[in-house]
């Protein structure tokens, strides 16, 4: 194994992310390799120093401001609902439910769908069905226009 590979493992070791067997192998190597031992000491020291560093928050009562902001904020109506059940429903099932719902509305106006009653066809409201053909209707319509 190359030195750089050992050094990557040293980084894992100081973070406690190396399993016991690998840690044992690495520690054995460190006893024999002064270069890697030096890197280990540097990384451990750096970790120790960084852990002591705290980025200070200037006096701003930040938490209090956040809480005040939240107390004036209405929750979403679905907040608190367990929506994870939706994630467990297969997507094809949701599509099928949606398709059935949309299919049921086919050929209906929004009013019909909402009121659940059938409105007369729009053409029938404009043209009364007297048993005349379309050409007869048009001729009669033209004559009516000319007679005015």
């Amino acid at each position: 194994m190359r030195h750089v590979d050992y050094q990557k493992r040293i980084s894992l070791l100081v973070d406690g992310e190396l399993n016991e067997a690998s840690a044992g192998d690495l520690l054995a190597h460190l006893t024999e390799c002064p270069d890697c031992m030096r890197v280990y000491e540097q990384m451990a020291s750096l970790n120790n120093t960084l852990a002591k560093v705290t980025i200070s928050i200037p006096e701003s009562h930040l938490a209090a401001r956040v809480k005040a902001l939240i107390s004036g904020e209405p929750k979403e109506p679905w907040a608190g609902w367990n929506l994870s059940i939706l994630k467990q429903v297969p997507i094809w099932a949701l599509i099928a439910i949606l398709a059935i719902g949309v299919g049921d509305m086919a050929g209906k106006t929004l009013t019909e769908a909402l009121n659940n009653e059938e409105a007369p066809p729009r053409l029938d409201t404009l043209l009364q069905d007297n048993g005349e053909s379309l050409s007869e209707i048009m001729i009669n319509f033209g004559q009516g226009e000319n007679s005015q």
Binding site: S60, V66, L69, I70, E73, K75, G80, W81, L83
Partner: peptide, 23 residues
């Protein structure tokens, strides 16, 4: 500092609104 404060406020606000989505 100013941007970090904005982020803190926005982060908690979003978390509060979307807490129902947190698993």
């Amino acid at each position: 500092h100013e941007e970090a404060e904005d982020v803190v406020q926005e982060t908690f606000l979003r978390a509060f609104k979307n807490l129902g989505m947190f698993d």
